[in-house]
Amino acid sequence: MENLVNIFIKSIFIDNMIFAYFLGMCSYLAVSKTVKTSTGLGLAVIFVLGFTVPVDYLIENYILKAGALTWLSPTLADVDLSFLSFIMFIAVIASMVQLVEMVVEKFAPSLYNSLGIFLPLIAVNCAILGGSLFMQEREYTSIAEATSFGLGSGVGWFLAIVGIAAIREKIRYSNVPAPLRGLGITFIITGLMGIAFMSFMGIKL
């Protein structure tokens, strides 16, 4: 249990998707103009990451990994399908996003309308595929660990996008040099936030 909390906290603060790995930067920069839409997108990302990472974990460990198919028949012990992992993961993500979209449309139409185009765009958000690939690389040992990693990464992404959106709402009133306006200053602020987040790196978990 303690281990799960550790992974959760670590993936929010120390291995933050945005500040440590720059994953999901595209939608992070494009959508972070207002706090309201950022909150919606952030929640959707938490949701999708929390689902896809464990599903991809199961696929990885029961279908793709070398010798993972032994539960079907012992003769398959030397089958290694891991080269298929990119295609499998992206297919899971695309279908999961489709599913989330249908569920949200059915049960929360107002949220669906406010998210608009951003919901389908989550499929190509690097943070989602990155979550699955990191899960594969770090070799988590149980599905609970994978889930807590997925949720934690989502929460970290959520915090980052809401933070930058709040700053961008305020900075509209400041006198930024003309060539830096918009994109440039956003990059630099993100860098400074990243430096701030680095103070968590010293924490040993």
């Binding site: 440590a20 720059f22 060539p179 830096l180 630099i188 860098g191 400074l192």
Partner: peptide
């Protein structure tokens, strides 16, 4: 070497390019 400086470097490239 740390990640945040990549962002700041790109920010500066954007600044130079747009200037």
């Amino acid at each position: 070497i740390l990640p945040p400086m990549a962002l700041i470097t790109v920010g500066i490239i954007i600044w130079v390019q747009r200037a």
